[in-house]
Nucleic acid binder design. Structure first.
Lengths: 110, 110
DNA sequence: TGACATACATAGAATATCTATGTATACTAT
DNA sequence: ATAGTATACATAGATATTCTATGTATGTCA
């Protein structure tokens, strides 16, 4: 009925990369795991965003072979990416606080 | 740079109306006030959403004159609107928890 | 009476995310 | 060996959401 959207995609991706370098597919599975399946980001969302982050200099890509021999494209967060993450985190907290303030207000009246 | 979007518009509007009947313009100012200016919903966002909520039967509109004599269009939340609000609230909590879980995870590693 | 805030409304642009699709590799079970 | 499935990256086009811009009209105050 209503889509469960991820509008803070940048925040989530940068947050994942702040912990360790990851490749695209891994980000999708990790995000699902860490959110207990609340988030199921699609490839069609992730890859364009990832390329955008790279163009902005927030992440850097490098190729590396898995043990299987298969090539994977890993992403690493940059210094400026960490700055962006800090900002996004802050703005998430502001947003979260604002929603909860509105909810509490009505609850208080009910 | 990046828009501070309100994607949980339904939740916020229904939440306002759960406290008291309101007219459109009032919702905008109240939302700003209660969120300490984090939210500044635009008319172009509000009115279409309001009409949609009405069509879905979640709110009902009625005309009423202000003391000034001016006509205003008030909205009242319906029974099914309260049901919708409860669902939206729940899904906001799930979403909020999931974002924070992802953030905490990375913070724990840093 | 002119400026400004209030009040409702819609069209069109911009943005974000999803669906669908394509390609290719590695693993697993028959 | 080979068919099916999971992995892995990618893009085009559709859909959804919100904003910008604009229009109309009323009430208030200097």
């Amino acid at each position: 009925m209503k889509k469960q959207s991820i509008e803070h995609t940048h925040l989530l991706i940068l947050s994942l990369l702040a912990g360790e370098d990851m490749y695209g597919y891994q980000m999708i599975t990790e995000l699902a795991r860490r959110s207990q399946n609340v988030f199921s980001m699609k490839e069609g969302t992730l890859y364009p965003v990832l390329h955008g982050l790279e163009k902005q200099g927030y992440v850097e890509a490098y190729q590396q072979a898995a043990e299987s021999g298969r090539m994977r494209k890993y992403y690493r967060i940059t210094r400026s990416g960490r700055g962006c993450l800090a900002e996004e985190k802050q703005s998430w907290e502001v947003y979260e606080g604002a929603v909860n303030a509105v909810l509490r207000f009505s609850a208080g009246l009910a």
